[in-house]
């Protein structure tokens, strides 16, 4: 079975927990998570040279928000084409359009359904 490597960056610990549990329901997903943009970048910069298949990125985070984190991600080797999905509580269509304009493959709005999350991610990846 091919494992899907997922990086999840979310500052809210409760939500991160739920994300972890929700994605844990899918045995083919291997998840690494970070509670802020810098930690997320640190995982990408790790000595193991880990590269995820998809990155889930929260938009509103202190210090370094989602879009800034995305900019940094894109500047790293081998990550310029990695699919990024934003997680946001701003559900309005103009927010969605703005985020898609930054180069994300999709936007998942909070609250999301944890039971269908993995499926939703896969369908976004298939685009």
């Amino acid at each position: 079975m091919t494992m899907t490597q997922v990086l999840c960056v979310e500052d809210e610990p409760d939500i991160l927990e739920i994300l972890t549990l929700a994605l844990g329901l899918d045995p083919s997903i291997q998840l690494r998570s970070a509670s802020n943009g810098a930690d997320g970048l640190a995982l990408l910069d790790g000595a193991d040279g880990w590269r995820p298949d998809v990155i889930l990125l929260d938009v509103m985070m202190p210090d370094m928000d989602g879009p800034t984190t995305l900019e940094h991600i894109r500047g790293r080797p081998g990550l310029d084409q990695t699919p990024v999905i934003f997680l946001t509580a701003r559900a309005q269509s103009e927010d969605r359009t703005r985020l898609l304009g930054l180069g994300a493959v999709g936007v998942i709005t909070k609250p999301f359904d944890p039971l269908t999350l993995a499926r939703d991610i896969r369908s976004l990846l298939q685009g």
């Binding site: 809210e12 409760d14 939500i15 739920i18 549990l21 929700a22 844990g24 329901l25 509580a89 701003r90 559900a91 909070k110 609250p111 999301f112 359904d113 944890p114 039971l115």
Partner: peptide, 22 residues
Amino acid sequence: SHELRTPLTSIGGSLGLLLGGA
């Protein structure tokens, strides 16, 4: 509205996971 969504995500997510047998 957006601030309300964050706790709702946690509550809804937890309930959903519980109902889903997690």
